[in-house]
Design a protein around this nucleic acid. Sequence first.
RNA 1: GACCCCAUCGUCUAGCCCGGUCCAGGACAUCGCCCUUUCACGGCGACGACGCGGGUUCAAAUCCCGCUGGGGUCGCCA
Length: 482
Amino acid sequence: MRVRFAPSPTGYLHIGNARTALFNWLFARKMGGTFILRIEDTDLARSTDEYAEGILSDLAWLKLAWNEGPDIGGDRGPYKQSLRQKIYDKYLDELKGKGLAYPCFCQPDELEARRKAAMEKGTAPRYDNRCRALTQKEIAQKAAQGVKPSWRFKVPERTIVVDDVIRGKVEFDTRQLGDFVIMKSDGVPTFHFAVSVDDTLMEITHVIRGEDHLSNTPRHILLFESLGFTPPRFAHLPMILGPDGERLSKRHGAASVSEFRKLGYLPEALNNYLALLGWAPEGDKEILSMDELVAQFSLEKVNRSASTFDYAKLKWVSENYIRNEDLGRIALLALPYLREAGLIEGELTEEEMERVRSVVKLVRPYLACMADVAEHARPLLAETAAASAGDLASISGAAQLLQLLAVDLEKVADIRDVDWKKFFGDLAKASGLKGKALYRPIRIAITGQEHGPELLDVIPVLGKERCIARVRDAILKITEKI
RNA sequence: GACCCCAUCGUCUAGCCCGGUCCAGGACAUCGCCCUUUCACGGCGACGACGCGGGUUCAAAUCCCGCUGGGGUCGCCA
């Protein structure tokens, strides 16, 4: 079995396309098939190499490895449509020879005007096939004037049945279709034409794509058959909508893989969430590894109805991964964000890295994505606590308490080897404070925050010197205030 | 507008194909309680849905028809 993901490099990898890529990949892996990547850059005006590279990069980041593609080649290449021009020319000639393609001299502005007029009149805004009736003489005339024609496919009147893996048999009456352009006037094939030729030549067995292509499929089937090709199987995936029911776009928030990538979502988390859109695993377990996804995946079980992208649920999936993934890996992923926030600098020594790990260990339960790490790690990594002395000054006895604490901390030999229960028990006795009255001022002095990870865990991570410094600093601020 | 697809809690979904086991199960979100020196995590619980109308049937979320609603296509974009 051979499937393909065929993005056009006219933008970043959209979340909907990423889901399509994922389902193709899952299907290929599940069936022991081949996953092919093909770049559809027939839109010369909008396609760029930068976008193509970005898409490849994002797919690689998602760990959706392809077996054949523009970068790695393969037996059925090239895998970039702009490199396949000769092939399309050849098949256009074939259609011309069969009398199934004819030149159209209508200009874009004319077509646009007619389309608009038809819309206003309430009739179908499709091409009226007028150039089909052109005589050889007229054609020669136009050509002599130097008008470059586009080439349209002569659509026969008949019924076409798309036997969709997900939707079952869907019937179309081709009389709804106008003769459509297969080769643009600049000599570049349109999507419909290139796709049909390439899917055949690349021996694609299953075309898994978005539902927006379902209505295009009869065109493709027509082309396949006219060229003497056997159409592949089709599976049209439901759309992904934004919270307002419109197609998901930037308006709704992050809508491209690169955005989630920048925010520090784990690729597995994004895949896991995407897999849950339009498909459901058996049983109650929703956090699934890529392997588990592959093991459970089935095209037949894909939903027919569109789903709404739920940022809240993605967040939940992401949190799960951040909390449960290997700590070393999470710490590594935290590095760029910590660096950007100025909390670490340069290459880290093993000792510094160890410290980052222990900090990340404490703050990971708070993270929805890795970009959140700086905010939570700051109190634990920054030189000073940035304590709000105002808060402490209003707590009676805070200065005395901190004084006692500083003295006790000084006496500590190894901060990683302290019986904190006893330590704070003694402090409670000495200060006459307990519970919240005891811990709150200490937390504020040491972390500058009202909330955060277990204080008893924070202190050893911070280290003796830093704790003492922060406590003394807090005392100073209080006394100055008074 | 024409054609095509779709329709279960606010959201993602299970169930629908092979009607009774479903006064509809799970997850996210929300709310509450518990755990706890705080917040977060975690545990427990609550709230909450078969779009509407007709059929068929002893029986319909499940089958059929219509309506309504949403989405898609109708490009020399893909």
